[in-house]
Amino acid sequence: MKPKASVNRPPTPDVVENVPEREPTLQELINIKLIETGEKERLMELLRERLVDCGWKDEMETLCRAVVKKKGRNNVTVDELVHVITPKGRVSIPDSVKAELLQRIRTFLVSAAL
């Protein structure tokens, strides 16, 4: 039997040494910290619960339904819905919910800074 020739791999190229590493910003660092500790998920769930309780989500769904009726269910896109409801959604957040979430985020920042 004729022996198989081994596959000759090309040599691995050298790592380019001139790429400067970008220093991450404080926001990015804290965001990574939030994700790693699981606090972001907890905050997300808490915010979702609070918004459902106070009826904010129902208002948003009503707005979305109105937009769908206006444009037709086959002509509407997610981007259009997001574009329409984002300003109204930001404005109509109840102050109590916003204060609670901001307090929790601030507490996390203080503990992370320590």
Partner: peptide, 27 residues
Amino acid sequence: QLSSHFFLDLLDSIIVDVASECHRVAR
């Protein structure tokens, strides 16, 4: 500033969730 920034990020995520859910229901 950081806390308000993160709050707006969370809120935008939830707004996108609601919009995509309504879009799915409509389609």
